[in-house]
Design a protein around this nucleic acid. Sequence first.
DNA 1: TCACGTTGCGTAATGTCATAACGTCACCCC
DNA 2: GGGGTGACGTTATGACATTACGCAACGTGA
Lengths: 144, 144
Amino acid sequence: MSTAIHMLDAAERFCTERGLSLTPMRRRVLELLVEAGGPVKAYDLLSALKPGGAAQPPTVYRALDFLTRAGLAHKVEALNAYTACLNGHDEDDPCTGSAELFICESCGNVDERHMHRAPTDAPEGFVITRSVVEHYGQCVRCAN
Amino acid sequence: MSTAIHMLDAAERFCTERGLSLTPMRRRVLELLVEAGGPVKAYDLLSALKPGGAAQPPTVYRALDFLTRAGLAHKVEALNAYTACLNGHDEDDPCTGSAELFICESCGNVDERHMHRAPTDAPEGFVITRSVVEHYGQCVRCAN
DNA sequence: TCACGTTGCGTAATGTCATAACGTCACCCC
DNA sequence: GGGGTGACGTTATGACATTACGCAACGTGA
């Protein structure tokens, strides 16, 4: 799958440009997320990392923390899982950290939109710093 | 606070009308959520229930499951916490289960809007069954 | 009236998700 | 070459949630 390689290369460039260090461990975790193509649990990543050095929880959580801070991955709150950011990080469209996720409960696929719109019906004067928006249902393939 | 009592009475009527049984345990948990006026952790509810019979996790989780299914409470996914549904359940505006939450990170207050709008930018043909929408930031009082 | 299914809750144990606290190593930089 | 910093290993623990089993209360229909 060349798209996966492309995404990793893009991530590499993305980090270099910003002085972030995409270490082997972080790159490996991102690679696993990209390969999965959907939400992955932290402990599943942990298992996947094992063959080649016994990894402990903090290792993978630190990597996930870096990736989510950098905008290269998102946490799926309602699943306690993590997914690679689908955005091309090689364009001038860096991920802001507030993505709108569409999660298919049948095939596990995740589609991602970046929120351009602010909620029109926010309480008077409420200042939003972070949003969690996750839609669950069925993608077009599974709905039929 | 008479609003709390009003909310519990409304919940009582809401359940009666629908053949749901708001048992003492469920009522007590809802009461604690209403009193808190913001997100509460399951284990905090558990502690609050203790004096008067040692409660175990399943007890409170069962009550929360009932309340969320009935639409009387919501889970705040990003906090692993629960909050009473602010909607008046005595009007013809039953909670659909998909609320949009505005959570103040300073004072912990939660404001709630019901989503009337569907996302305009959903993937082609995606059928949404459930949405999680949580905005974090500062309410108008804390922002100043 | 009694057998039977259903519902709600008690209880013990366990599973799952995440972090704290500490040490070490490599690197950079003056 | 001392000192700060960042990344990661390691051990232990904390925080959140569920499984599995049992029993009592209640309603229903034979």
